[in-house]
Amino acid sequence: MRLAGLYACAAVAAALPILFPDNYFVTVVGISAGIRVILAVGLNLLMGYAGQISLGHAAFFGMGAYASAILTTRHAWPALLAMAAGLAVVGASAWLLARPILRLRGHYLAMATLGFGIIVHVVMVQATRWTGGPDGLAGIPPLNLLGWSVDTDLRWYGVVMAATLLAVWLSLNLADSQVGRALRAVHGSEFAARMLGIDTGRAKTRIFVVSALFAAFAGSLFAHQQGFVSPDSFNLIVSVELVTMVVLGGMASTFGAACGAIALTLLHEGLVVFEDYEMLIHGALLMAVMIFLPQGLFVGLSQATRRLWRAARRGG
């Protein structure tokens, strides 16, 4: 029962390519949505549960992607080993960064994470010798899982969906444990949390690292799946989009974050039709949702539905 939502998602993910074979929307958009769900679910652990904003999460996404790209193309490492190395590097950087940065609160934290994101992006553009500069790195080999090469859209769809479901499962488990409650306690009142024996600094540091690892994992998948990385995929706008996904879906809800990620992916696909109007509509929608549904689409709508349902039952 606890995982009913997860099983439903798995069933839908499995059914889609069967119902719509060789469909661009299922495979290509599905992969892109899946990667974003991993990112959003990871960021939600930090933002939604622990209440710490990060406007620089694209940096960890990018570091994961570039680690895979550089190690496989320049040093001919096997893909899985490169991914593991990327996770290690990102985990260590996040851990080093966490203590000083998470002492900050509110807008100061927003500024610091934003600055971190921009610094990493500038390095991606400028450190041409390693990163290929603004042109990026091409020729990244696909993932290879024990001899099974992930080289078709359908295979990628399968791998990304499995990874996405894994991320959602991990997030649900964390949220529904003493670790998750301790994080929500930090969000609710740091004073009280400390008084109950929670080392708040340690709790925030650890979830920051976990959140960064989710992003790096998504980044590595992204690099191998695209075969190409460039700094544009990891700039400030991407960081902002990640925060938007979490807030759009509804904070402190794993499925909310996932819905936010899917909604934003579909929005991008849909707005492509409008070309020049895309930015304008995107901005207007962001404002509208935040003003009229401040709890987010998923959480706000599900609460509204519950209220309606109760009203209907009372009425009937």
Partner: peptide, 19 residues
């Protein structure tokens, strides 16, 4: 509204004006 909400609203406004 909470800080994050207002941040997103003004970011939305920025994207809108840029558009």
């Amino acid at each position: 509204a909470p800080v994050v909400t207002t941040i997103i609203i003004t970011i939305g406004a920025a994207i809108f004006l840029r558009g």
